[in-house]
Write a protein that binds this DNA or RNA. Structure first.
Lengths: 203, 203, 203, 203
DNA sequence: GATGAATGAGCCTTCATTCAT
DNA sequence: TATGAATGAAGGCTCATTCAT
């Protein structure tokens, strides 16, 4: 059941998106989606094999791609770059990504805010984990290079990563317009930069 | 239908608490609660007028009290105190509160993590708002006293507050034991302290 | 949800019985049963937790008891008795049982003819297995006592047992009245007696 | 919509056969068959007018032919033959038939095991009836010739016939390989021969 | 104070079938 | 020949709630 591009399916997708965004996966009603799209509940199953499949069809592509991007990003971190981007410069949450996210805004909102009950319900946690790894790696490098002496426990890193990613969550949850979002990100970036520098006793 | 202290009600409350904590308000099942408590669904309605009322009965007292404490706290902020507690000393999230929260752990978890669908679903946001006001107020005072020159937009303050409160959320969501929580809070406190000082260009 | 003896439940049970007997477990419709009983489908769930539970409530007692009787019966076989009851005298299918079966006719019909899809769907096979064990045991004893020399493969015993039990199946499937059934059993008994004696070359 | 020999139809038939054999007529899903065959459910209706028609198309030829063979067989019974084949020599279940059945194994399995809900659901009973007639006829002849004095009621004949045919049923239901089946049949043959002789007091 | 009995709306899903194209 | 799109009915089941007793 790959892509079908009929008019009905387009309507259907729009309705699915709306319903899932509004109520989240679990509370979303297939019957309601169908009615909105002007077909019977049974008709939906010509296009999607299950409720889960409907959700996945909306987000799978973006989720997959995003995971790839993240992994690649992680591989690029090395000592040279540290000097330029001290702090959390390689964060999962870099300014450059905002573009990507805003090109797939609904998908991200679905993944982060509305995915409970689906196999994507851990997406936000995945982001946090990524940020954690990124932080941990960076700190390790900074220590190896002699910039930093202090250590952090896993818990501490988890907390900072979580708080950090929350910024992203908030931006998306409140449908913040892109320009504001960028300002916002920039601010968070600097705010955290200060926090890290201070915490790492780098100056 | 105020307080009834029969044995049944005690059992009932325990079951309600467990169910709401486990599944959240919306997914919690009244029928299931009743069965656990050893009464019929109808019996529940002798004690509580609705599902909402059940939830409220568990958290209302703490929520109310908490709001009061917060307001009072806010009134106490003045110039004198500033000198001692520069930074985010008056945060909604001060170490001293941990005690209060841990004395009502379940209630806080219900309010923050499990309240979607109830009139308390904005509780976390309320905390954030409180933190925002606290921050805004403090910055204002610091400016008036000449410690600080920079300004912050409302959005910036919102973001920092949100990220900050997320710490609390994470602590509660994961049932972190009190001792670990305190360590954690202390860390966040310092982390943010550095961030604020740097952001405010206080040094 | 043990026994409730209200009028509704009585009607309900009657309807369940009828529906299951008529259509078998899988094709039986809960909605239809409910309608016949004059309640809504949801109402059924006050009395039974699931479709399976409905079926089980009708047959569990008899099935359990029957298994017990069979096991006990099996333990009673010994050499002494052989001389009196040569042939298949200790069959799962003795005349004496007819009484028991006719006292629980519907239950047996449900178990044997209508149980596909339930955990009792192997009931008939169980009877066959019991008959097999009985035959195997008897042949072994007869050999040990020197009455018999020939051997039988497992498959041969399975076949004869299956055909034998089929008698029971047919009697029940066609709602044969008890008197006719007894005649019938008696006939089968003798018919098989001849077959076994001949097969075992006992005379 | 008689025979169409396109490639699609061949695939379709294969899928129908598999589905019906696996689940029986009633539980078989047309949608599922179509999917397996790589066409849409609607496509199926180009080839067959209904689910029933699908089933019939698979078994009609064999069923018809089989009925003919049986009738012819019946006409051949006469006194001469009796002397050679005393017992149940003319049974519907003669060894010679096994070949025929194994040449149309799937069709027989469909007719006997999977036909509930179709107009062939009585096929097994038909076999039994045939066996009954055969037995009745034979006994009558034996009586006329003075070999036998005892009489049998219709019910008694029905029972023996049913048990007898059950052998066939079991053989087919368990996909017994042909060689084993023949052994098995031979055994049943002899077993019943003994039973009949004893019952008829022929010796 | 609690039950027993029931309801009506809703849930996701499957079914055989239809029909315009 | 087949598809694509859809249907109406039914499936078992759960829900918060009601009400007479």
């Amino acid at each position: 059941m790959p892509k079908d591009k009929t008019a009905t399916n387009k309507r259907l997708q729009e309705c699915m998106r709306r319903e899932f965004l509004e109520k989240g996966f679990e509370k979303a009603s297939l019957n309601h989606i169908a009615k909105q799209a002007g077909i019977t509940p049974a008709g939906v199953y010509r296009h999607y094999a299950s409720k889960e499949a409907m959700f996945e069809s909306l987000v799978a592509a973006v989720a997959e791609e995003f995971y790839c991007i993240c992994e690649e990003q992680m591989r690029k971190i090395d000592t040279d770059v540290i000097r330029e981007h001290v702090g959390n410069g390689y964060s999962t949450f870099e300014e450059g990504w905002i573009d990507y996210i805003y090109r797939h805004f609904d998908e991200f909102k679905l993944l982060i805010v509305c995915s409970k009950g689906t196999k994507y319900e851990g997406f936000l946690d995945t982001l946090v984990t990524m940020e954690e790894k990124s932080s941990a790696h960076l700190i390790q490098l900074l220590k190896r290079e002699g910039f930093v002496k202090k250590s952090f426990t896993e818990e501490q890193i988890h907390i900072t990563a979580t708080m950090y990613i929350t910024g992203l969550y908030e931006i998306i949850r409140h449908d913040m317009p892109k320009e504001k979002a960028i300002e916002c990100i920039r601010f968070i970036y600097e705010f955290y930069d200060g926090a890290w520098k201070s915490a790492l006793e780098m100056r």
